[in-house]
């Protein structure tokens, strides 16, 4: 572009479009619910987990029999129950935002606490699953299936723990904005599990 001859004088600020206002400095991302940075994180997370699921399906190609036999060791019913737990927890989180929009901060906090409590239930079920597997000698290095099983579910479980912390923080510093941002993270964790469950536990 340095070869172009620019004769025009500097444009007045008003011509530069929507980026001039404070609110619009995130460009099109400003319209998203919650904070734009949270959405950058969500898309990144979807890419990471999506990559892991594709890795899972791709690795299975090399030895479908090993994957089928290993997957039968998973507790599919526990996974289904956990799906329901997280989806219900998501409802609580959404109701917290709803209450906060009506400036009912106590009710909002109660819903956030309920959402976190269900997050703890999820983790408890997960721990039971892990301990059964580990007790049977099915460790992360047992085979390629279990390496990926522990990686994807473990990474997700870390996000549940992080989510509970985030919900606690936004409950403490409660405002419509903070609660909306915090619950956005929580729904992302929910969404990832909804995708993870059929791919890792069910498809066979």
């Amino acid at each position: 572009m340095q070869h172009e001859q620019k004769e025009a004088a500097p444009q007045p600020a008003s011509d530069a479009g929507e980026t001039d206002t404070l609110a619009g400095s995130w460009g099109i991302l400003s319209t998203l619910p919650g904070h734009p940075m949270m959405w950058i994180l969500i898309v990144s997370e979807i890419l990471v987990f999506g990559g892991a699921f594709i890795a899972f399906a791709g690795t299975r190609l090399a030895d479908p029999e090993l994957f089928r036999a290993s997957q039968d060791h998973l507790d599919r019913l526990a996974g289904a129950i956990n799906t329901m737990v997280l989806l219900t927890s998501g409802l609580c989180a959404a109701l917290a935002v709803n209450a906060m929009a009506e400036a009912k901060v106590h009710i909002a906090r109660r819903w956030l606490a309920a959402a976190s409590a269900l997050g703890v239930v999820f983790l408890a079920v997960k721990m039971v699953e892990y301990s059964t597997k580990l007790g049977a000698g099915l460790t992360p290095t047992a085979n390629s299936f279990f390496t990926l099983y522990y990686l994807t579910t473990g990474f997700h479980a870390l996000h549940v723990i992080a989510g509970i912390l985030i919900l606690a923080i936004v409950s403490w510093k409660a405002s419509l904005e903070t609660i909306e941002i915090g619950t956005t993270f929580w729904h992302m964790v929910d969404l990832v599990w909804v995708l993870l469950f059929p791919v890792v536990y069910l498809m066979r």
Binding site: S44, V48, G51, A52, A55, P140, T141, S144, L148, L151
Partner: peptide
């Protein structure tokens, strides 16, 4: 290092392009 690094490394470093 343990084999799970192969997947952690592959997935996250693929996104380093972002």
């Amino acid at each position: 290092t343990p084999a799970y690094w192969q997947w952690i490394g592959s997935i996250f470093s693929s996104l380093e392009i972002l």
